[in-house]
Structure formats: C-alpha cells, structure tokens
Amino acid sequence: MIEKKFVLETEEGLHARPASMLAKATMKYKCDIKLFKDKDKTNAYQPKSILSLMSVGAGKGEYLTFVTEGDDEGEAMRSIENLFASNFQG
C-alpha cells in the first residue's frame, strides 16, 4: 500500500478537466485506488470515476490524499504524481 498527499493547484479546483485527466490516468491500473479529502478518512472517493472525483468538491489549495493498493500500486501512484507535478497541463 502506498499513501501520498498532494496539494491541488489548479485554478478551477477538481473540476471537469483535472478530474477527467485523473480518471483516465488511474483507470489503466488494476490496483485499488482511493482518494480522501484532507484528513477526512471517513469518506473514500473513487479516482477512476470522473463523477466521484468532481463530488470531492476540492478547491485550489486543498490537500488530497491518494492510497493505491495492489500489484501495480507503484505505477499508479507515479501516474498520479506526474499529473500533480505538471499541474494537470499534460
């Protein structure tokens, strides 16, 4: 299991474009991926679903924690890191 926290820097927050990019990137992996908003571990969002990602309602400057678990958990986390590193410009 890998857990990493990122800060969201997109102007519009986790809206249609960044949510779509995250869903497309994570859908390729078999591992289980969860997303938590800030420190709230009670509500797990599904990064492979655009609608679930948009329902996080995360704005610019908010923290998002991703957890990947399964065979390709490393690759999956790297693809998430790449999106945040490029600020979803890719």
Binding site: H15, A16, L51, S52, M54, S55, G57, G59
Partner: peptide
C-alpha cells in the same frame, strides 16, 4: 450522484 459545489454541474447515474 453529484451536485458540484458551485451547482452548475450535476451528475446522475
């Protein structure tokens, strides 16, 4: 399944 925080986007399953 989704009402975006600024209300302009709605998701339905």
């Amino acid at each position: 399944t989704l009402v975006f925080r600024t209300n302009h986007a709605i998701g339905i399953k």
